[in-house]
Design a protein around this nucleic acid. Structure first.
Lengths: 230, 230
DNA sequence: ATGAGATTTTAACGATCGTTAAAAATATCT
DNA sequence: AGATATTTTTAACGATCGTTAAAATCTCAT
């Protein structure tokens, strides 16, 4: 057959579902995890099915059994990491409106960083493919990356709902996310540039200070506009 | 021989130096120009010597006659486009201190944009390889990209000389250049995201407005610090 | 024009790429 | 246990990759 059986995939005995041991992970998950690793190291064209096979400790043609093409696997990877992001992102806004702008922004950034430390691959994959995502060429994963930006914009707009300064919010959130993707997705580059150890607390501290420095005045401005027009 | 004669490369009759016709360009230049094009479309690993050969309308092994390896050609390309940038960049600061912050920043951005429109490849090549430039792997071009960031930082520090708020200037200039590289180097991505035509005046106008929106308050802050501490 | 040296073309190398097909191994059900 | 369906392995395809070597062509001083 051309692919894995889809009719009863969860029929495995529940007792066998112990994913505690890394080895007992279903093949599909092993492939996704390995693909996340490889696509976090190389942009789409430079990453290879064979690298992913090696990382997953399986023979590489098995990948084509679960994912018909490299492009669909890539799309699945983008879906996987961006879904993780969305799920986390909506929680970062919780309880922010009770704070003043400075405390609120600080809290949001801390939550963002917490996610970035736990999922360092996500933003790096986006950063690695961001430029090419604007290309004519239609790899489905690229469309997903564009959607990712749209969604983060929408998510912000919904969390901080105000119609009047829509343009300001758009400028703010796109710039905020772009800088975050760069500083957190290309950490080693910027850390080296600044003379810090790539994953160090010093570096993260610089990034936070910088994000506060750049965006706090704008946030205050947006919020004051809100209060002015109400 | 292993490479082009280097002893008398300029011995060609001056009368033959008419580069007006695109065809009469020296092979080395044709290769560099084609390589700039290809490396502006694909990141280092995805770009190929054969693509560059096709773009230069020569047989691809001729490239190895002028450049021993793909890595050295890439380095030469980075050198080429960053040198163009440096040369332009130093002129953008001219006469800025006579303006108020808003006019000064606006002028600087206009000059930056003017360069970006005339040399759209430069920032795109940097943007395409920025993330991987932080990698352990030592492709000489990656080091050049890191140096590019260092140099833009230094250039700014020299043009606006003030010791006290060194950290603020570092945060400002790195963030400014990062956003500029994204918005101008990955233009099509952001234009699509915003619903604009990729190379349109509308898009550039959005970018300028955004850069002003984000960075004017910081610039004012830095300048006021300067006046406060003197 | 002839020979020397610089440049370009042609052919080919070993390696890796994504994908396919068939064989082998494993799991599932009667 | 034996038949059936699912998963994994093995082998190979055509294509492209960077690079090298040798042949062919071109340039130019003598």
């Amino acid at each position: 057959m051309a692919g894995p059986k889809k009719i009863k995939p969860a029929k495995k005995k529940a007792s066998d579902q112990r994913v505690g041991r890394n080895q007992k992970k279903p093949t599909r998950e092993k492939i996704i995890d390995a693909a996340v690793k490889v696509f976090a190291d190389y942009p789409y064209y430079a990453a290879s099915i064979r690298m992913i096979g090696k990382a997953a400790e399986i023979d590489h043609p098995l990948i084509n059994y679960y994912f018909p093409t490299k492009a669909t696997l890539f799309e699945e990877v983008i879906k996987h990491v961006t879904d993780e992001y969305y799920q986390a992102n909506i929680t970062w806004f919780e309880g922010l409106e009770e704070q003043n702008p400075e405390r609120g922004l600080s809290l949001y950034i801390d939550r963002f960083f917490d996610f970035a430390v736990k999922h360092p691959k996500a933003l790096r994959i986006v950063a690695l493919n961001l430029v090419q995502a604007g290309d004519r060429e239609e790899i489905p994963g690229y469309r997903r990356i564009r959607e990712f930006f749209t969604n983060t914009k929408e998510s912000f707009k919904n969390a901080i709902p105000l119609q009047e300064s829509f343009r300001d919010i758009e400028m703010f959130t796109i710039s905020f996310n772009t800088l975050a993707i760069n500083y957190l997705g290309a950490g080693p580059h910027y850390a080296k540039l600044l003379g810090f150890e790539p994953g160090s607390g010093q570096y993260f501290s610089w990034v936070k200070q910088t994000m506060m420095f750049v965006f706090l005045p704008q946030l205050k401005q947006i919020i004051s506009e809100k209060q002015h027009t109400r």
